[in-house]
Amino acid sequence: MVSLFESQWLGGTVQLKNRIVMPPMTRTRTSDGDVPNALIATYYGQRATAGLIVAEVADVAPSSKGYAKTPGLYTDAQIQGWRLVTDEVHRKGGTIFSQIWHVGRMAHPSLMPNGEAPWGVTEQPAENSDVFAHDAEGKLGYMRAGKPRRLETEEVSALVDTFAQAFANARLAGFDGVELHAANGYLLEQFMNSALNTRTDRYGGRSVEDRTRLLMEVVDAAVRELGPGRVGVRLSPFGYFNSMPEDPLAEETLLYVSKQLGRRGVAYIHLLYELMPTGNMETAEFEKHHIDHAVLAKVRAAFPGTIIWCGGFTSREQAEDALGTGLVDMIAFGRPYIGNPDLAERLRHGWPLAVADRSSYYTRRGEVGFTDFPVYSGDSAVQGAA
């Protein structure tokens, strides 16, 4: 049996102490200017016993913002804020990657520079999906994503430079690597989806090479900045989150991307198979979209690096059963990491898991529901993680 507590190498470059991943989870706790702060550093430091932490996703530019109070990675203050986080995780012996995104059409004019329209692969809006933004009176709340404008070809090319600067900033902030968010209906996946991407330039159309061109150019920029062993990519094939249309070419695209990432020496693919098909972050019900094992086997054959599987894992037994298939190498535990800062130790010893109140996930009440969860010690809980 493969143990969760065996070490794992990423790209022959980064050695992880176990096969447990804390995946990126938006928590909306930043300070003014979308700056990570000491509270956020404490939160990640408490969870540094994970083999790999992938930090909550960071915006590459002001045009990338789809949700209020999410962190950025494009100003000096944001870089210094993230340095607080990475220093604390490293002090606790952990490894942390930055997840980086552009939300594309999943935005609202109230969050965009000068109130402009969100950026889209086309002008097709995310008709049934909400973002966390300001209403006409300036009050924060959930509202429907705005109608996007179609990016011109030169603007798409320029985005590669924007991502490249974010990768340089991640290195300055002390991250051990980066993960590109090419999942969940955000910009990179918007380009890859054959039903949504009806462009006729070099970034679109029926050709899988053209639809994935932006992702590959961004991956190449990340590899140039950080080295291939410090780059991962998150994918959510067959998902519908953020009003993504069903893609008849999803499997073809997934396998093409897997092969291309392998050729570039990318450290890992992070596969997400549990998505929210409608609604917003606080209210949507979760619905599972499983990746068939036969498809996973094809990904394994196409991609020689590490494969992380995320979605619905809540126990060591589930995780080790998945590892035992030989199709994946690491398991990501999402929501269990919110209420269990010492999740790795709880899984190791079979200690019970706490269940966090969902109403605290995105609260703006500081440490409440964020850093105030106790660690478990023997038969008693101890307030505050060591």
Results as ranks from 00 to 15, higher is better:
267 A>G: 10
322 A>G: 01
290 H>A: 03
318 Q>F: 02
314 T>E: 14
332 A>Q: 08
259 K>N: 11
306 T>G: 07
299 V>E: 07
257 V>Y: 02
335 R>L: 12
264 R>G: 07
299 V>G: 14
309 W>T: 04
272 L>C: 09
317 E>V: 11
319 A>R: 04
330 M>D: 05
285 E>M: 01
276 M>W: 12
328 V>H: 06
285 E>I: 01
301 A>D: 12
294 A>H: 03
272 L>Y: 00
327 L>Q: 10
283 T>D: 15
325 T>S: 09
260 Q>S: 15
308 I>L: 15
292 D>L: 03
292 D>K: 00
313 F>P: 05
304 P>W: 12
255 L>Y: 08
273 Y>V: 03
272 L>D: 06
288 K>P: 00
316 R>P: 05
299 V>T: 02
293 H>S: 07
256 Y>I: 09
329 D>S: 11
274 E>M: 04
290 H>F: 05
295 V>G: 03
283 T>E: 14
288 K>G: 04
335 R>Y: 14
265 G>K: 14
315 S>L: 10
309 W>E: 00
271 L>F: 01
300 R>H: 11
288 K>W: 00
305 G>C: 08
275 L>H: 03
267 A>I: 13
308 I>D: 09
268 Y>S: 08
319 A>M: 08
254 L>Q: 03
305 G>H: 02
276 M>P: 01
313 F>R: 05
299 V>C: 10
254 L>H: 04
335 R>T: 12
288 K>I: 02
286 F>I: 10
290 H>K: 07
318 Q>R: 05
321 D>P: 00
331 I>F: 02
325 T>C: 07
305 G>A: 11
301 A>F: 04
332 A>F: 08
284 A>H: 11
290 H>Y: 01
303 F>G: 07
319 A>C: 09
283 T>G: 09
260 Q>L: 12
284 A>W: 06
323 L>Q: 13
279 G>R: 09
322 A>H: 02
254 L>E: 00
260 Q>W: 06
278 T>H: 07
264 R>E: 14
313 F>E: 05
290 H>G: 00
286 F>R: 15
